[in-house]
Simulated scan of single mutants.
Amino acid sequence: MIFKVVIVLVLFVIIASLFSALYFLAKDKDAGVRTVKALTIRIGLSITLFVFLLIGYYFNWIPHAAT
Rank of each mutant, 00 (worst) to 15 (best):
F19P: 02
H64N: 06
A31W: 02
W61N: 05
L53H: 02
L9W: 00
V5W: 05
L22H: 04
D28N: 13
I41P: 01
F52R: 00
I7T: 07
L39G: 01
L39E: 02
A65E: 15
N60I: 02
A16F: 14
R34C: 01
V51A: 15
I15D: 04
K29S: 14
V5K: 08
S17M: 14
V33G: 05
L18G: 11
V10H: 06
I2K: 09
L11P: 02
L54I: 06
G32T: 12
Y23M: 11
I41M: 15
A16I: 12
P63N: 11
L9P: 00
D30F: 06
V36E: 05
I62V: 15
T40G: 13
I2L: 10
L53W: 04
A31V: 09
T48Y: 04
F52D: 00
F50K: 04
F19W: 09
H64T: 08
V13C: 09
T35F: 08
T35W: 02
L54D: 01
N60P: 01
K29F: 06
T67C: 03
A65Y: 14
L49R: 08
V51F: 15
F59E: 09
F3A: 11
V36I: 11
G44C: 03
F19E: 07
L54P: 00
T35C: 10
D30E: 11
D28H: 02
F12L: 15
A26E: 05
F52C: 03
D28Q: 06
G44H: 00
F59L: 12
V13M: 09
A38P: 03
L39M: 13
V33Y: 13
F24G: 00
L54F: 03
V10R: 12
P63Q: 12
L49W: 08
Y23N: 10
F24W: 06
I14K: 02
A26P: 01
I55T: 08
A16C: 12
Y23S: 10
F12C: 14
M1I: 06
L18P: 00
